[in-house]
């Protein structure tokens, strides 16, 4: 199974689309949003930190959901079928794909945090950096499951589109691009129930020196269960035809 994870990570990192859009985009957007149109003095440190968390979260959730796009491609190529006639059990194949997602989210998180520290001069104690990275990493689990569910459920073409749509919707409504505080009241209340918002909150709370609130953890856990159920359902359905 480790071999399979290694193979998949390698394939993902060789994907130019992944490198450009999965890592380059969030970094670029972070740099632009904190350095353009912010007046002579540049953006305030508060925004530089908040946007850093938002963009790292955006990149991470894009990579997590993208795991499923790869699954859909492999399904279409007949590779998932081919794997079924190797001794590798189907359940290990799915688990390995999920774990692959946990590895491929790391470059986006690391790149944005690095740019935050080196380019935007964000300074935090070491434990905060570490806790931020770990929470952003762990928090991608629901999105990986959502992506996998789409990947097993849908065709290769629709998975690409649907996954990109999910990513943008979750990111924007979750306030990863623009802070949710700028939203009208109704959207702000809605945003608090979305996984993207609570995912970023995990990170924001650390940068403010605190632990994530119970509300954030509870909402994310609910989404984790929902997307997990969806992934299992989609996989079971696909297993009959893959």
């Amino acid at each position: 199974m480790l071999d399979y994870i290694r193979l998949e990570v390698r394939r993902t990192l060789r994907d130019k689309g992944f490198v450009i859009f999965g890592i380059g985009m969030p970094v670029l957007m972070y740099v632009l949003m904190t350095n353009i149109g912010t007046g002579a003095g540049g953006a305030g440190m508060e925004w530089k930190i908040a946007s850093m968390v938002g963009m790292a979260a955006y990149g991470a959730l894009g990579a997590a959901i993208g795991t499923g796009t790869g699954v859909a491609e492999d399904k279409q190529l007949g590779w998932l079928r081919q794997l079924r006639i190797t001794p590798l059990s189907p359940i290990r194949v799915v688990v390995a794909r999920g774990l692959t997602g946990t590895v491929t989210v790391l470059p986006a998180i690391a790149s944005v945090l690095l740019v935050g520290a080196l380019v935007n001069g964000v300074r935090m104690p070491g434990w905060q950096w570490a806790a931020l990275a770990v929470l952003l990493w762990v928090g991608t689990a629901p999105f990986t499951l959502l992506g996998l569910g789409n990947g097993y459920r849908l065709s290769s073409q629709s998975t690409g589109v649907v996954n990109t749509g999910c990513m943008l919707l979750i990111s924007i409504i979750g306030g990863l691009w623009f802070p949710a505080e700028l939203f009208p009241g109704w959207l702000r209340s809605l945003s608090a129930w979305t996984p993207g918002n609570r995912f970023a909150e995990l990170g924001q709370s650390v940068t403010q020196g605190g632990a994530p609130g119970l509300g954030a953890v509870a909402v994310l856990a609910a989404w984790l269960a929902l997307f997990g159920g969806y992934a299992v359902y989609a996989y079971r359905r696909a297993a009959r035809t893959v």
């Binding site: 193979l7 394939r11 190529l77 007949g78 590779w79 079928r81 006639i85 001794p87």
Partner: peptide, 27 residues
């Protein structure tokens, strides 16, 4: 199949992109 007694070349199976031939076969 689980015991590794079977190998197959399926009609509609395409090899996956972004790996070298050796990486794929070794895997």
């Amino acid at each position: 199949v689980r015991a590794g007694k079977v190998g197959a070349m399926l009609q509609d199976g395409q090899p996956i992109p972004r790996v070298t031939v050796r990486e794929l076969i070794t895997f």
